[in-house]
Design a protein around this nucleic acid. Structure first.
Lengths: 349, 349
DNA sequence: CGGTCCTGCTGGAACGTTCCAGCGCATCTA
DNA sequence: TAGATGCGCTGGAACGTTCCAGCAGGACCG
């Protein structure tokens, strides 16, 4: 048990101990602690002195209990080990802390929906004041039911169909990426996506890709689903060989990949199969994870303004909590930007 | 406000509502909810039915309040954005969840001790049942004071001077790394360290490096402190040029770097300065972050068994919490292993 | 000078659990 | 059959806050 030096009784001092020492009522101590006004300067000083002497610290558990709310901000993360999530998680945490909230992370690794749901329930049991989603959920009805309408929710960059959201403009980002390839002279540009979890964002990115190509009068293909590490891909439900889609005489000369981790896996694949980048194949990613800027990777990509996304997301959910923001869900968009590096070049002649 | 369909009164149903419906006392409901035995099968069934009907969910805030403890496991992370921390954080979370604990992460970015301290205090205010350190703290006396003796603490892989710890054997890992370079034929092997935050681990790694070289009759240098991105290094407090330490006629032919992120930064530096790796210079890291296994990085490194560290760390702190582990701090060591990749080769002839 | 208003402080009630002493009743033992 | 034992259940107390109605007493107003 912790015990302050001046209060060796074993139990932590309570508001009553402070009140007794300062010669005031518990209510006054409470008012001082909470910074309520309506306490005279002299009384305040006396109480503060008593707090100091006793080493009193408010019991957060009691406070949370009586107020029936915490200063916990729940954060649901797709995969902490993915640098994109790690990066944004860190920023969310920083912003929340500045506003007096403590973040509670739950890591969800998309694989198992039941697992994800049980994680969400464990999080909700702590009665967070709000929840920030950095992860996508397939079974949203269950999640929605679990959340009820009891907790404000914001989606940081992932979906726009439920709750508030703050997202980069996926279609604009995809347009920037695709237009860059078009400007370099590419015509056969493929769109590769790697993870089911980003369905909605991925769809929007595919639309942006399509619209850029259409505007340029070039052909846009369907999404090519690829599981990093594998040799096979799925196109409109049919299996095919990744090798044949890339770099060959009829294959694509450039790829826009729906995310950096996938794009980097593509670079790996290319390295193993003697496809030179950007000589034989140009690759553009999405996210601008740190990794992408390493000289040995040097991936051209679309940068998400993570700081802004994190800041605005937290601000939004805090505003909902405070009642400052009411009404229907608000969907904010932030602007992506293109970062050109060494993974893109004009197509071979 | 959340409300179950069958309980539209606005307030969440309490144990009393369940008791009334089931025709028993609140105590019996409590016993059913907590799984206490001493409740007959028929009563239990009746209570469970009532719980179902009302959609009752125990109020975690009230429970925590009355028991004065939570099922929150605090985790202090060095930098969530560093893949090493992200990886181990994720594993810790997984193990904790399996044991019924929810993890609360606090991200500490070593720079600012006052900030770190305020983060720790915010974490402690939630009264976690235990704390796992994945970060190193310079000002441990303050942290120690803040923690008091009230919360069991375990250090995962970082220090061995306070609280329980579960760490890879840093000196053995360093020996493996250095011996690998010696076996390849290197004699001029430098030790580079990048971050103040890993002082203790770094010191142990330097000792392992020294002992391997001594055993081989080769010279061991002092730690070379390098700030990734810079050109200058500090050796025993004196400044020098990194370029001159590496690859030159008198410079090192191989480097053992105290961590992978630093080692990868060294690769970057080498790339920019036309030092070929491993032709001109061999590099070994420590940690085996995912990144290191990318074909374009392919860093020889020392792997930490992160799963084991995470599992044993959480087990240790849970055992302390439960009182199953008593007595003086326990310092467990786990074994590192060498992962040979393409960043090391025999020295140029 | 009586009433009203404000300021600073008070004390009770409430929050929803857990924990525990204790009680009635049936069963077992001598 | 009396007493002991144990099982299943009960009701009160406690946990440390916040919130709120209310109360003195001084200042201000007509």
């Amino acid at each position: 048990m912790a015990s302050s030096p001046t209060h060796p009784s074993g139990r932590d001092p309570t508001i009553f101990d402070v009140a007794a020492l300062a010669g005031v009522s518990k209510s006054t101590v409470s008012n001082v602690v909470r910074g309520t006004d309506g306490v005279s300067e002299t009384t305040r000083a006396r109480v503060e002195r008593a707090i100091e002497i006793l080493g009193y610290r408010p019991n957060a558990l009691a406070r949370q209990f009586v107020r029936q709310r915490t200063t916990i901000l729940g954060v649901l993360v797709g995969d902490l080990d993915n640098p994109f999530y790690g990066d944004i998680a860190k920023r969310v945490e920083r912003v929340a802390f500045r506003s007096g909230y403590t973040t509670m992370f739950c890591n969800i690794e998309g694989e198992d929906d039941d697992f994800a749901l049980s994680r969400v329930e464990a999080l909700l049991e702590q009665r967070p004041a709000g929840v920030v989603f950095l992860a996508f959920f397939g079974r949203s009805p269950d999640i929605e039911a679990a959340l009820g309408k009891s907790v404000p929710v914001v989606f940081a960059g992932l979906r726009e169909d439920w709750g508030d959201s703050v997202a980069v403009s996926n279609s604009l980002g995809a347009k920037l990426a695709t237009q860059h390839l078009i400007d370099l002279g590419h015509r056969r540009i493929a769109y590769v996506t790697t993870r089911g979890v980003e369905q909605r964002a991925g769809q929007a990115r595919h639309r942006g890709y399509q619209s850029a190509l259409r505007a340029a009068g070039a052909p846009a293909g369907p999404p090519i689903h690829w599981e990093p590490g594998g040799e096979r891909v799925t196109i409109k439900g049919r299996e095919a060989s990744l090798r044949e889609e890339l770099g060959g005489p009829d294959g694509a000369t450039a790829i826009f990949c729906s995310n950096d981790i996938g794009a980097i896996a593509l670079l790996e694949y290319a390295d193993r199969h003697d496809i030179r980048i950007p000589g034989d194949l140009s690759v553009v990613g999405f996210d601008d994870v740190h990794l992408a800027s390493l000289a040995r990777i040097s991936l051209t990509t679309v940068r998400q303004p993570l700081d802004e996304i994190a800041r605005v997301s937290v601000e939004t959910v805090l505003a909902r909590m405070a009642g400052d923001l009411v009404g229907p869900p608000r969907h904010l968009q932030v602007s992506p930007s293109l970062v050109v590096r060494a993974s893109t070049a004009p197509p071979a002649a």
